[in-house]
Design a protein around this nucleic acid. Structure first.
Lengths: 182, 182, 182, 182
DNA sequence: GATGAATGAGAATTCATTCAT
DNA sequence: TATGAATGAATTCTCATTCAT
């Protein structure tokens, strides 16, 4: 058979898993679906990953890393002079404007974490990492945590209601709550 | 077999579905599991609910109603003189102090809306209802929406990180963001 | 409940059964489907027809009667001066130009007859009736039977291959076989 | 359990499917029945054939091949000096004299094409193959098609009416229609 | 008479995983 | 080392039929 030496296959399987979860949700993740998406033989996925959970964890870890990178960029680019409300609105806007299925996937991670013992640490680490980064920047961890919670709640609201994103409306709501710039 | 006439069976199936989701998560929701939990024959669940989605919807509706009642009580009991931050902290505290698995269940059904087309309207309606109620009370819908987002993000954070709930810490974070009483 | 006195309900159920078989085939015939199509309660179909077979038979009988009426009209209108080939071509053309699903249904009857003991007499009677009618008109039962076989085979061919119906091509083939007018 | 390595199992499943359809009709074709007839676990049939349609297609292909071989032998053995009517009568006689259930099966699979999208091309191909073969032999495709239609109609008639096959009667009818030798 | 809830069997599929090659 | 056939359990769903009301 072809393709005997195939480094990067493991990585390709992970990528395929992310694609599958993105398209069909975590419930749709299966060895077969991943093997098909990665164009590798069925046995290959079970060979590289002992169980389906391991594959799920690997996939979610990678998705997380991507999101955290985005978040970190946002934190680094925060304008100390601008109202935090505006800055958060900017992040929400950018996130919703991007690939929706990617954001959905991000939140499906939370959903999975509620039940999967193996996944919870990853979600928790993601939350903590966000709060820590922002906290270091604005010098207040408790506030950072609150902002992260805010952010999660907002994105979830937009994803669930499908309400069209209106920067002005969001900024108003945020401003009414977040108060003055810092 | 006995038990041919059994009014209220439909309701018992819904209750069983909630129990099953509570114990094994949405992924564990199956006709079989529900039938066993409700102590009815397998065919009975598919008779009363055309598809698993319908059952999920019915369950979510019921769970939502319970939560909305709690939320409404909180809204009605809002002290106009107290800082909103304190009031939110109170609600979070009360919610987390109660049955954790109930909250987990609520959020799981809630997050399920991300994938289940059929469930989304219900989750959205729940969000809207919360915002409306609070909005009517505080006289500002945009702010109410933001508070609801906040609340969701906070509860999710506590559920996922398992961080012990410390009223003081939460109130600090909230206060740093929510600002003065209104 | 409404609709206590509802004469013609039996007939409406039969009509609905024909619709269902027309759309989903005999395999798709079910009490539920028929009840839905006839807009009658589920129990009504089992009340009026002891078993599913009885309903199938009633439906096929009716379909048959319709087809035989068409066929009789064709026989009565046969032009003794015209080549039989042309006349058969005319019938094929008219049949294929009409409602395809009706013809398909007609042939599904044959399919069912191959297996269903209860249905075979109906199909046989249909075949015999066609041959008899035509035989009386052209004065030769054996030839009539052959023509009927021809007709069935031709329609089947067109239905299966989906080959576009070209009167000229068909008439040529028929003429090459059927010979001179009679 | 034993029997882990079992080449030829796929073929055995196809054979079993043909047996099942032969005994219980297409309506009786089910993974379960086939698995039992082939003496393989249930999962094995779904592993080798993605859906029931694929299995049906495989079965039809095999049955068709058998029939086409018979038909080809008849074409090759055509006596140019004999009336085509007599030759067709000979084929009908031989076919009906053989295993009736085999012919029934052939026509059932054939007629199934009316409903099964996936099966239609195969039935159509069989029809075309017969016409082509005969057409090449007698030098006239249009006539060949007509003869094939005739043949199908005749066999169907005999199968459905159960009328005893009388060579003389058939030949008379055919002769009255087919005309002189060629 | 008429209804629709109830039932239990059976349908197709999908799947994680094992294991012979 | 890598593969894919094999397996058996579990899934949803459909259904004919029965029977209490």
């Amino acid at each position: 058979m072809p393709r005997r030496y195939d480094p990067g296959r493991r990585q390709r399987i992970i990528d395929a898993a992310i694609t599958v979860v993105g398209e069909r949700g975590i419930a749709g993740l299966s060895h077969r679906a991943v093997a098909a998406a990665a164009d590798v033989p069925l046995g290959s996925t079970t060979y590289h990953f002992a169980g389906l959970d391991d594959l799920l964890v690997a996939a979610l870890r990678q998705v997380n890393a991507g999101w955290l990178a985005d978040f970190a960029r946002w934190v680094d680019g925060l304008d100390p002079a601008a109202p935090l409300a505006d800055e958060v609105a900017r992040l929400v806007a950018a996130t919703l404007a991007g690939d929706r299925s990617r954001v959905t996937l991000e939140y499906e991670l939370y959903l999975a974490a509620l039940r999967h013992e193996a996944v919870r640490p990853i979600a928790a680490a993601c939350l903590d990492e966000m709060a820590d980064r922002l906290g270091r920047r604005i010098g207040d961890l408790a506030t950072a945590r609150a902002v992260v919670a805010f952010l999660d709640g907002l994105l979830l609201q937009y994803l669930l209601t499908g309400r069209p994103f209106r920067p002005a409306a969001l900024r108003d709501g945020l401003a009414g709550v977040l108060g003055a710039p810092r």
